[in-house]
Computed example of a mutant assay.
Amino acid sequence: MNATDILKALASFPSVVGTPNAAIVEWIRSYLEGFGIIAHILPGPEGDRANLFASIGPSDKAGYILSGHMDVVPAQETNWTGDPFALRRDGERLYGRGTTDMKGFLAAVLASVPALATSPLARPVHLAFSYDEEAGCRGVPHLLALLPDLCAPPAGAVIGEPSGMRPILAHKGKAAARVTLQGRSGHSSRPDLGLNAVHAMASVLQAAVSTAHDLANGPYDRTFEPPYSSLQGGLIQGGQALNIIPDRCTLDIEARAIADVDPATLLAPIRSAAEVLRASGIGVEWEELSAYPALSLARQTALADLLTELTGQEPLAAVSYGTEAGLFQAAGIDAIICGPGDIGRAHKPDEYILASELSACQSMIEALGMHCRA
């Protein structure tokens, strides 16, 4: 199978984030088995989702990880011009949910397997495919926890998020949380008898706005756009009807942090503002939704030099979007972003990747295999 055929198969699985993924995992496992490669299926604590890990070559040597996620964002937009889970080709463009983010990379990796499997590799190439990346990198930490039992400490990891095949050295870290306020309902004509959870949330939201304003004043890291950490309230819900005192309100917030800043700490002022409300009888719940650290790889590293050689492109200092790369780095593994496609096409109707981009990625992976040969 070529990369396009493999992408057609992968895109047909509606492996939407937060849903069971056994079908796509089994397809990949069976495909690898056809080349004599054993894939380790690593179930997550959810029970219906799993990571997949496989090694090509001697797993007791320091090799390189090719990392990508199998999940995709939902495709519920009404302005798709075709079935989002049926690959459709128009010239060079291959349309479908996840083609760019990031089943295109997975397809290029799997299309490289025949060449890798028949090469006399002195150092291994590992495949690390995760679940629920789109929910804040929830799957890969469980894979990383098991990695010492699966292979020798790797020399580096390539995270194949769409980068136009240009290596990327850094991205911001992220933390997200949900605050829920519980008040007391009643008729809106007697506000004195209720506790309005929407009104109470105003002080929490104001804390988020103030924190976001303060973060814009620095500290700065000019490799990022914007060059400072940021915070926003992204979703707020509360109330049933205009004449009912709302007894419940939720606010989802996220923080994105420059390197050397723990994104979770940026949420502390918002949590403090919520906790203050307990004194007035409001119930407060705080739920951490997701968190991953920033990536910051120095240009003067062997991994950055290697990807520069393999792609022929000088690394880009940083991008605004987040990936699993920071988690690999936090686990002690040098990580770099490099994959096919353009992030600007992701999470949109008629998402697509170019056939030439798949070919370029496959060539890079096969060149990595040559680098790992005896």
Rank of each mutant, 00 (worst) to 15 (best):
I65L: 09
G68C: 10
D71I: 09
V72Q: 14
V73G: 12
P74Y: 11
A75E: 09
Q76L: 09
N79H: 11
T81R: 10
T81F: 11
P84I: 06
P84G: 06
A86C: 11
A86D: 06
A86H: 05
R88C: 05
R88M: 07
R88E: 13
D90P: 06
D90K: 12
G91C: 07
Y95W: 05
Y95V: 03
G98S: 12
T99V: 06
T100G: 13
G104A: 02
G104I: 00
F105C: 03
F105K: 05
L106R: 01
A108D: 04
L110A: 12
A111P: 02
A111Y: 06
A117R: 14
P120T: 12
L121Y: 00
A122N: 13
A122E: 14
A122Y: 02
V125L: 10
L127N: 03
F129I: 09
S130Q: 04
S130K: 07
Y131S: 11
D132F: 13
D132S: 10
D132A: 05
E134T: 06
A135C: 10
A135S: 15
G136H: 11
G136M: 03
R138H: 11
P141Y: 15
P141V: 04
P141C: 09
H142G: 12
L144V: 08
L144S: 07
L144C: 09
A145G: 08
